[in-house]
């Protein structure tokens, strides 16, 4: 991730929620960067903060602390014109195409929404761009007249993608973009994302719980647990040789692709702790099979580069002695 000029840069991003008297640290000091044309996947289980992180990037929610920079510009300091440009530059595709398309709007208006809100275009130009966006996602221009309920799930997701594409964004945030779709439709949509990325050079931030999907789509992955990144780096390196005990456990828990794939790897015990009361020290220590001692219970390990692990950074005391830099 050492590219000179990342498109998206997230630094010490933090979001705390109040729940009664308690405080949930949904996102707790998360930093990463996404290079132009690159795909970063945020993976983890419920309560890990991946969805909150995505919402913060989309400015659907405000961070408690930390900063988000797009092209080096801090989002908090955007003026009106800058914010408008941000809305053109950053778009999203959500999980459930039944919920993400307004049932009372025609496809034309759904797809054109970003342009309607941010650019003053004539009707002709708007129609031309809607046609182009629908065509790009494999729909027909005359679909613009229809309402969402006239489409199947896969087609609806294509409509959602068309609407995200129309402003020529540079970053797409994809929140579980295929998990609500039928199995035979998923690879169509995943391939569409790949083709669009090749064509338009967009960056993606994907939130996904399915590791197969993640491996297929991502260049970089960030594994999150209870609000923090525990391991981050190039996807292939992590899938081939996970370092953090949680990453290892997550990969071991993934379902096999063939009945003969051995699965007698160590099974992770216990449940995910409530984010209301994350364990002290390393949040993972109560479940950790590699627990090394009191330090795990008291100190949260830094996310540091690890020797022999390439461009990767891992937050685990196991590698502390071997830390470089």
């Amino acid at each position: 991730m050492g590219d000179a000029a990342p498109l998206l840069e997230v630094r010490e991003l933090t979001r705390h929620f109040r729940v009664g008297k308690a405080q949930v640290r949904a996102v707790d000091g998360v930093s990463f960067a996404v290079a132009p044309g690159d795909t970063l996947a945020l993976v983890g289980e419920s309560g890990c903060g991946k969805t909150t992180t995505a919402r913060l990037i989309l400015q659907l929610d405000e961070p408690t602390a930390g900063e988000i920079r797009l092209d080096g510009r801090d989002l908090r300091q955007l003026d009106r014109a800058g914010l408008r440009q941000f809305r053109n530059d950053v778009q999203a595709v959500f999980q459930d195409p039944w919920s993400s398309l307004n049932p009372r709007m025609r496809v034309r208006e759904i797809v054109a929404e970003t342009l309607i809100c941010n650019q003053r275009l004539g009707r002709k130009e708007l129609d031309r761009q809607v046609d182009a966006a629908l065509t790009a996602v494999g729909l027909r221009p005359d679909h613009a007249r229809n309402y969402p309920h006239e489409f199947s799930g896969g087609q609806r997701q294509r409509v959602a993608i068309a609407s995200a594409l129309i402003s020529r964004p540079r970053l797409l945030v994809l929140d579980e973009p295929v998990s609500a779709l039928d199995v035979s439709i998923r690879s169509q949509i995943m391939n569409l994302f790949k083709d669009l990325q090749a064509e338009f050079g967009m960056s993606y931030v994907i939130v996904a719980h399915d590791l197969g999907t993640t491996r297929y789509m991502a260049d970089q992955i960030a594994v999150m647990y209870l609000g923090r990144i525990v391991e981050i780096g190039p996807s292939e390196e992590i899938f081939e040789a996970p370092k953090h005990p949680y990453t290892k456990a997550l990969l071991a828990a993934a379902l096999p692709s063939h009945p003969d794939t051995p699965h007698d790897r160590e099974e992770l015990a216990g449940e995910i702790p409530s984010p209301l009361e994350p364990p002290p020290g390393c949040h993972f220590h109560p479940r950790c099979p590699a627990f090394i001692g009191p330090v795990c219970e008291t100190d949260y390990p830094d996310l540091d580069p690890v020797e022999g692990a390439g461009a990767r950074r891992v937050a685990c005391h196991l590698y502390r002695g071997a830390a470089v830099g």
């Binding site: 919402r55 989309l58 400015q59 659907l60 914010l83 408008r84 809305r87 053109n88 950053v90 778009q91 999203a92 959500f94 999980q95 459930d96 919920s99 993400s100 398309l101 307004n102 049932p103 009372r104 709007m105 208006e109 929404e113 970003t114 809100c117 941010n118 959602a160 609407s163």
Partner: peptide, 25 residues
């Protein structure tokens, strides 16, 4: 609902969200 989140991502203001997205529903 996600379509409201999507509208916000698209840059829709309160007026548009209330009258174009929520009111019709």
């Amino acid at each position: 609902r996600d379509f409201v989140a999507r509208a916000r991502v698209a840059g829709a203001g309160h007026g548009r969200i209330i009258f174009r997205h929520i009111l019709p529903n």
